[in-house]
């Protein structure tokens, strides 16, 4: 019985990720590619990488972002038999990591903080009146976000 997100997702460690990703849907391939790019590009950014004194990004923060993504992706599949779309993983403020979904009918931005004692925050809308915003512990599944990703 898998006991961790990585085990549930069929992952062992990042070095062997391409071989053991076990759910080869289009969304999974996109998410895997995005995570691999983030591990390569974000973690290579040192302090002041943009000439504006911006902070570097830690493996711990990226791991928490990946854990959030895999947990919510799996929950989406459990509930809807579909995986949610993959976000773009980007360099957020002060060493935090942004997860950005921009779809035709909705958009969502989630921020995973560098400080693991802080809550993650999110905001999304349908480009109209319907919106979702708040904070949550990124180690838990937020069903509101899962529902938003699958709608």
């Amino acid at each position: 019985m898998p006991t961790t997100v990585e085990a549930t997702c069929g992952w062992k460690d990042e070095a062997t990720l391409p071989e053991i990703w076990v759910r080869p849907t289009k969304e999974d391939r996109e998410l895997k590619t995005e995570i691999e790019q983030a591990r390569t590009k974000l973690l290579a950014l040192g302090h002041d990488w943009d000439g504006e004194d911006s902070a570097a990004y830690s493996k711990d923060t990226l791991d928490r972002a990946v854990s959030f993504l895999t947990t919510h992706s799996i929950k989406g599949y459990d509930l809807c038999s579909l995986y949610p779309p993959a976000p773009r993983i980007g360099p957020g403020p002060e060493g935090s990591i942004d997860l950005h979904w921009k779809e035709k009918t909705w958009e969502l931005l989630v921020n995973i903080p560098a400080d693991n004692s802080q809550m993650a925050v999110f905001y999304g809308d349908d480009y109209g009146a319907l919106k979702i915003k708040g904070s949550f512990d990124p180690r838990t599944v937020n069903l509101g976000i899962v529902a938003w990703l699958m709608h």
């Binding site: 958009e107 931005l109 921020n111 925050v121 999110f122 905001y123 999304g124 915003k133 708040g134 904070s135």
Partner: peptide
Amino acid sequence: NRVDYIEARL
């Protein structure tokens, strides 16, 4: 406020 901040950024 971090929640208002992320909305402002988007």
